[in-house]
Write a protein that binds this DNA or RNA. Structure first.
Lengths: 254, 254
DNA sequence: CTTGACATTGACGCTACGTAAAGGTGTATA
DNA sequence: TATACACCTTTACGTAGCGTCAATGTCAAG
């Protein structure tokens, strides 16, 4: 049995453009080209196309598919495991998006016009996500799953008032930090007051507190350019100064 | 406070390329361009960028974002609801992909070399998914959620042997259908035997049976080109013939 | 001989930028 | 003042997987 593009396409439920594309990238080459230049496919191509579509159905990319169907020695199982991992990551990410969108919808439905929240929600979520990603495992290992979940849940579960308080606290940290940087002494009174405010702020965000995580976060403030930029608002060196203040704070207190 | 691309980018945690792109598409236009051609952003742009990034964080496309932040009269809430729906659909789809991949992994780990299964698994899943999509609500309304879930679970929960039986049954339908088409009579003995086989096949796939859904599926076989092509293998008009046979079968029996 | 269905190649479009390439600007330092 | 170096600019190609014209050639039927 021989097939032209359209016949094969109809049989497999794909467009002729797709077949031409697969030919173009060498994924599915016709058995032969007839005198008029038509692509002619045979049974072997039908079988191969079935395989291709099977893996495509699973969401794999064409390059990945090429490796699997092109080389029988290729470890398709491993490729599938990796693909599964990617899918699971993606799902997790979408779940997070849905949660955020739902929270935003709830806020708007509650008649709260997006203002400052809009400005910082993304930032806030980033903080949680990044922190979770970077230190989650570590914290998890030391303090168990509950600590992490509690931490992740704290901000998301805040009421509007709590959230506003939290935000105000953040603003006052910024102001105090500015004054403290002016003194030049990370161990001075003002700097330590800033660190204490920051501790309170963290407690609200995490629902719990421990000085090691606090110190680690301070270090991150310097390393991550986004946080660095945030704490350098108004004055240079704010992030470093805050880190030093916190390190002294967590070191001396305990 | 004024910002150049890099300053703003660092503050917001995005690349300068992104800012240039947003300028290019008119999503975020700088406050002014200085004599050297540099883009200069002001506070208003910072605020707008925060909004943009907020919605981007939620996974919205830039065009959607433009509508929301550009026009205060635009119904952002509705846009968010639609977006949530899209996200939920996407998640559902990913769940299905994961299930498929996992089943495939399980089969391969079980040492079963993919052969025919590979060829038809995607097809099989499509059947379930499409059927669920098109008739799920209807069936749900009539017979309750449990029926649908049971149906979805039936194939996924099949053992390898059951699955093979199911596949053989499918193959025999195709063969019987071919012979029946040759008789030309959808109400003839052979055609009705085909319809009965098809009923058995469906019972296995759905875990239950009702003639209305059976008739609806038969109609789909004609309307959906993929199924049509499948049942037209070997002889023309196979899908129509099968539909007519099933319609007579479900109509006369009950 | 014409019509209509089918075939071909070529090329732009879509998203949201990444990544050079080639060159101008601003500032600190030797 | 020369130079190094960071920062800015525009231009333009690349990404995945095709959809969608456009312009044109081929084949079977009436």
């Amino acid at each position: 049995m021989e097939y032209t593009v359209q016949k094969l396409g109809r049989m497999a439920g794909i467009s002729t453009r797709t077949l031409r594309y697969y030919h173009e990238i060498g994924l599915l080459v016709p058995a032969r080209i007839n005198s008029a230049g038509y692509r002619i496919y045979g049974q072997a191509q039908v079988d191969r196309l079935q395989q291709i579509l099977f893996y495509r159905e699973l969401g794999l990319g064409l390059e990945e598919i090429r490796k699997i169907v092109g080389d029988p020695a290729f470890d398709g199982l491993e490729a599938l495991r990796e693909h599964r991992q990617r899918l699971q990551d993606k799902r997790k990410q979408i779940d997070l998006l849905i949660a955020n969108v739902e929270q935003t919808i709830a806020s708007k439905e509650g008649g709260i016009e997006m203002g400052d929240q809009e400005k910082f929600l993304g930032f806030k979520e980033k903080l949680i996500a990044d922190n979770e990603e970077k230190y989650g495992d570590e914290i998890r290992a030391k303090y168990g799953d509950k600590a992490v979940e509690q931490s992740n849940g704290a901000i998301g579960g805040m009421t509007r008032e709590q959230y506003e308080t939290w935000e105000e606290l953040g603003a006052s940290i910024l102001k105090t930090l500015k004054a403290a940087v002016a003194t030049g002494d990370p161990q001075g009174e003002l700097a330590q007051k800033t660190a204490k405010l920051h501790k309170r702020w963290l407690e609200m965000a995490w629902g719990s507190y421990n000085s090691e995580a606090h110190a680690a976060l301070a270090q991150m403030y310097v390393e991550d350019p986004r946080f660095a930029a945030f704490y350098n608002q108004g004055q240079a060196g704010g992030a470093e100064f805050l880190r030093d203040a916190i390190l002294f704070f967590t070191g001396s207190k305990n």
